[in-house]
Nucleic acid binder design. Structure first.
Lengths: 147, 147
DNA sequence: TTTACTTTGACTTTCTTTGACCTTAGATAT
DNA sequence: ATATCTAAGGTCAAAGAAAGTCAAAGTAAA
């Protein structure tokens, strides 16, 4: 515990604040800590990953910046998410969506739209991969709902 | 957020008003924000696009001006379906979803969930096909919403 | 001594800003 | 009427300003 990455991690953690978001400038941070700009990317990609409960979003060009969000996890969603394997049929996915509605995470209109988005028609182009894509979509939804 | 383009965008959004239209003078705006006149065109062509639900119309010569309209529901479904080809980027798909929300077809929570379901992460397994799958999902949504 | 983690920097991609040059519409003079 | 002038807006490409990627080199831990 003394390397720059850890220090930068501390800094971000300390400043991410109550609204669970921080907006930073890669260049300024790098200047401040006297390191290569890409060091910031390294810290973000090793410490502020989705698995650890963070989302990172960057914008390039003049006035660009990097935003780091803290996701707040919910045990129930996490456990559902673990139960889901690599593949999901339309029926299984709909079952999950119905549960989410029942549990109050989503309303009926959203459920119907989501059902459309994971339907066989919508995922036709994914071919044999459709069940895998469908599982991923549902997993991402669970992640999103848990933040 | 500190670049002129974003500030000019804010300004236009703030002034477009209830009648969904604003008439502006390129010269005056550029003077006001101390930028090149063509900066205004840049803002208009990157932020006030059809995808995002706006139409821009300019008139040259003496007494010329630029009018920015916010599109309303009727125009929208039509222009959106025209816009959608075989493939759709995440950004494009999100504009569509934002338009749908603005037009009152979907609520914010549904939009966010749908955004998740067409994200790169969710469609990662579709690989190179992701933009095609994404376009299909959006098309199916439009079909569902229009009935 | 491996193996995993850090640090660095060259190169890429994306978005923004600027300026030179073009086109159009109305006004004015002939 | 017609030609010319002038005051708009339009286009495009080059330069600038971020952030992103990746691989090589350096360090620490097992």
């Amino acid at each position: 515990m003394a390397n720059i990455s850890d220090i930068i991690e501390e800094f971000i953690l300390a400043n991410i604040g109550a609204d669970a978001m921080i907006e930073l400038s890669r260049r300024e941070l790098a200047d401040y800590f006297s390191c290569a700009p890409s060091q910031i990317n390294y810290v973000l990609s090793t410490r502020f990953t989705q698995e650890r409960g963070y989302a990172v979003e960057g914008k390039r060009g003049g006035g660009g910046c990097i935003k780091v969000y803290r996701l707040t996890t919910d045990d129930m969603l996490e456990s559902i998410s673990k139960m889901i394997g690599d593949r999901l049929s339309v029926a299984q996915a709909n079952y999950v969506l119905e549960n989410l509605q029942r549990a109050g995470y989503i309303r009926e209109d959203a459920r119907l739209l989501l059902a459309t988005s994971i339907s066989d028609r919508a995922l036709a182009q994914a071919g044999v991969n459709a069940p895998v894509v469908r599982a991923d979509i549902i997993k991402q939804l669970l992640l999103r709902l848990s933040r």
